[in-house]
Amino acid sequence: MTQAIQIEGLTKTYGDFIAVDSLSLNISRNSFVGFLGPNGAGKSTTIKMLTNLTVATSGKAFLNGIDVVKDPKTALSEVGAVVETPEFYPYLTPDKSLEYIAKLRGMKKDDIVVRTKEVLDLVKMSHEHDMKIGKFSKGMKQRVAIAQALMFDPSIIILDEPTSGLDPRGMVEVREILLDLKKRDLTIFMSSHLLNEVQGLCDSVAMMNHGKLLLNKSIDDLKKELEYTRIQVDTIKHIDEAARSHLSENPCVGGVEVSAANQIIIEFKGGPEDRNDLLRRIDSELKVTSFFEHGNPLEEMYMGLIKESR
């Protein structure tokens, strides 16, 4: 089996409510997949079924070829996970907590000492290695949680909103860790609400709503599929109606929105030459001070798909 994660018809129901509805999804080895969807879409339930926190009503989910529904112990042996914001035992230190988890996974004593230092350095928690976790902030606990997921050098990492609840600095630090992990031979499956984060980190995205998979594509393919790119242009000259309608006549322009006296948002379709031509024309008429892509293609795709699936 070449897939790192293979989900086949996975379903979870709570009474009459279908949280995950016959979900099928394959995730290749060494890929970084973002898992998107609005609140209640079924992302967390899917991740909980993959990590033995919730039992599937039906279907199969294979981690490295082993069905986690039937044999969670073996299936999770090479998987590191951070689900939501897990809590640690407050009386234990990061050293002791990591040692506990490493022992459960069969790591040897010498390896535990070396690896504990490495992963705590990576998540910037080495100074707090012997402090009781009960005194830590949410962000610090989240970093230790990431450290425990990396402790045994897993082949698959499953993350459920890893930057949720962190302050901006904590979010940046966790993103840096994830970028570093991306360079390694790892499969990362990460749910997130932050589309910029997913676009910046992931190779591809899987999107779900109402328990069903809506999309599973690479970020590059998504960008190609979007008909228009939104470009924000700031100018020195005031943008009047005549200038706006003149711009609208350009065949590469799908629409023009005047967002401020000296700012327009253009829906643009075309190649680099067309873009350059458009920039020159606006500059000659209105004197351009800045010209850049506005918004996030993933966000546009997301909003479109979620609206359709309502």
């Binding site: 082993i66 073996t74 042996s77 090479e78 234990l92 022992k103 459960l104 069969g106 045994f152 082949s155």
Partner: peptide
């Protein structure tokens, strides 16, 4: 990397959990 072969047996894991839970209780 630890592999599925490295994962301790159920009995070994009972001993590991017992040991660390005792440590946790003691503190």
């Amino acid at each position: 990397m630890t592999t599925r072969e490295d994962t301790p047996s159920d009995i070994q894991q009972v001993c590991i959990v017992t040991r660390y839970e005792i440590e946790k209780h003691m503190q």
